[in-house]
Design a protein around this nucleic acid. Structure first.
Lengths: 341, 341
DNA sequence: AGGATTTTCCAAAGCGCTTTGAGTTTCGCC
DNA sequence: GGCGAAACTCAAAGCGCTTTGGAAAATCCT
């Protein structure tokens, strides 16, 4: 059943039927209801491909993941983010497209996305410091919103981000106030912008309290469980071991906890842990009383917001870039306590 | 730059250019290379929407997630699966589309997917027992592959699944052979087909060894960490506590481990754990020596296989349904030991 | 009643591509 | 040299929808 058949069935022109269906004013109410009824009865649905071809809109949003950073896709944080975004899209009748793009020829890849015309805009994931994609996308004129920011990029662009620097400064300071002086940082990969900012925050807190930054207490890797375990195991085996850990993800924190247990130490008494991103759907941070003291901000909410920003950018292209900085809350859990001196 | 402009630039007809580009034989090699070169130089890319309209193919695959089961999307298992599928799609030039479909009017939703024409086929996630979607999709003729199976569905259909029943029977038997008699099952939601099968496997092993099935040792919930923790905490507080746990996911197993520690018990000595789905990207199960004894099968591989199956089904529609049963390996880790008697 | 509006409807031209059906060249062969 | 076959190339008709530029019908006004 297509438009033509429907209009023949109704003894109307395609124009009228199309207008009736799409809510244009130049069609009488009686005709409109008649058309709507027939469409319903005959199970008519417009072909989106044809519609897109005619209107130039695809009714779809792309989520772009650099292949180099493919693990991103499998990162539970990503799942939460797109779950949030998905809700917004569904509400507006948009589809969500996942795209793995090779980093070899990014220019080509993004131009491709634009030229193929299968999406109206994209969400850029995993921005690095001075991310070239931002200039590229601005140049080729594909609407986009970045999940995160990119230090050193001067151009205006739309983004939504959590205050990573502020959160880590706050968290580190919290540990310092508990008396900790030897605080380890288990960061994500520091070419990623969010991780870079987190380190800045951590360092700022230390400096503010006259504690020297010790490179041997800082690690930067993909935020897996095993990473947290290995790093903590090694650090805890030192003669002068750290008394606290700041982790970039609850998954890493779980690894640290494993190492703490294995070393026969007790959480919060011998070793404190504070973590960011603790509110993942399948890995909730305990219930009323959180397991880990955490810097919490809803990734899912960020996803929904990012989607809404992008949709409005697409609806009104001349709009100026929008930005949104979310603050993480410090949630006190059972993984932190005063430093033993 | 579109086909028309390109052909004008080359002084050829659109037909010839199109044929040259798409590898049709009725164009001379010299013309073809000339066209290819120009396309490259002028940065020409076909508009997929137009192409799709003309050919009737969308070059995209939909991954469909029932809204009721929306957590699925955020389940790390899902992330691994689509990462695997994504690789296959990328290789074949297909896009991946994520669709949240409301369960209220499934018939309508799936007919919609078909009529809108934005995908050539779909992967069905989270099949339940006697899943109606299978008959529905067969009827409306949209190619599909199910990740999992659906007990009680008689129709032939394409699926890829792991031998859940066999795996759980094997795992449970392994514990029995270690001397365990009081073995708890922390299963996923049992209206889901995979969980149903897992319980069957667990029960079979018990019965084979003359151990009675104890409903108080069986739980069925979404496989989160907190679920594992709560269930284990409760069970371990009993006067006659279970000596072993069979978990449906490493995330739940991590929760059980937490409860075990908290109760002052020692893993493998006082309580054994065996888990399925331990090979998630961000939650690797230790390194050389796995943390948990596990029933391992690569979800990522399953994703890639499912994608390949679907693509071949689309390429040759008259092909009979394909099925693929993967076996899980029993990997011995440090979470199991002989029962203390 | 008759002209000016307003309302309602339509034919046809795209959107960018593929593919059919046919025309024009070129080539091999007797 | 002339014929048929093979090799190239093309114009035009879709694919299913939107939208422009009017036309026809209904309504209003004096």
């Amino acid at each position: 059943m297509n438009l033509k058949q429907l209009s023949e069935h109704l003894n109307l022109s395609q124009t009228t039927v199309s207008r009736a269906l799409n809510g244009y004013p130049e069609v009488s109410e009686s005709t409109r209801t008649r058309v709507l009824k027939a469409a319903q009865d005959l199970n008519y649905r417009p072909n989106l491909r044809a519609k897109g071809l005619a209107t130039g809109r695809a009714l779809a949003i792309g989520h772009v993941i650099p292949v180099s950073n493919q693990h991103e896709m499998v990162n539970p944080v990503f799942g939460d983010f797109i779950a949030g975004a998905g809700e917004s899209y569904a509400r507006e009748g948009f589809d969500m497209m996942l795209k793995l793009v090779p980093d070899s020829d990014e220019t080509r890849a993004y131009e491709d996305i634009r030229a193929r015309g299968t999406v109206d805009g994209i969400i850029v994931h995993g921005p690095v410091i001075n991310d070239e994609r931002i200039a590229l996308l601005s140049r080729i004129g594909l609407p986009f919103v970045v999940h995160g920011r990119s230090t050193d990029v001067a151009l205006p662009y739309s983004w939504i981000d959590v205050n990573n620097r502020g959160a880590f400064e706050r968290g580190t300071q919290f540990l310092i106030e508990l008396g900790h002086r030897s605080i380890a940082l288990l960061n994500g990969l520091e070419h990623m912008d969010f991780a870079f900012r987190r380190r800045k925050g951590y360092e700022t807190a230390l400096r503010n309290h006259g504690i020297s930054v010790d490179a041997s207490l800082m690690r930067s890797e993909e935020m897996t469980e095993i990473y947290g375990y290995r790093a903590a195991k090694e650090m805890l085996s030192r003669s002068k071991r750290p008394t606290a850990f700041v982790c970039s993800s609850i998954i890493t924190a779980i690894g640290v906890r494993r190492a703490v247990h294995e070393a026969g130490l007790v959480l919060a008494r011998d070793v404190s842990i504070i973590t960011h991103d603790d509110a993942l759907s399948y890995l909730e941070n305990g219930d009323d009383v959180p397991i880990f003291t955490a810097l919490r901000s809803s990734v899912r909410y960020a996803g929904a917001e990012a989607a809404d920003m992008l949709l409005s950018l697409i609806a009104i292209p001349k709009n100026a870039p929008k930005t949104r900085l979310l603050e993480a809350d410090l949630i006190i859990g059972r993984s932190t306590g005063p430093a033993v001196t």
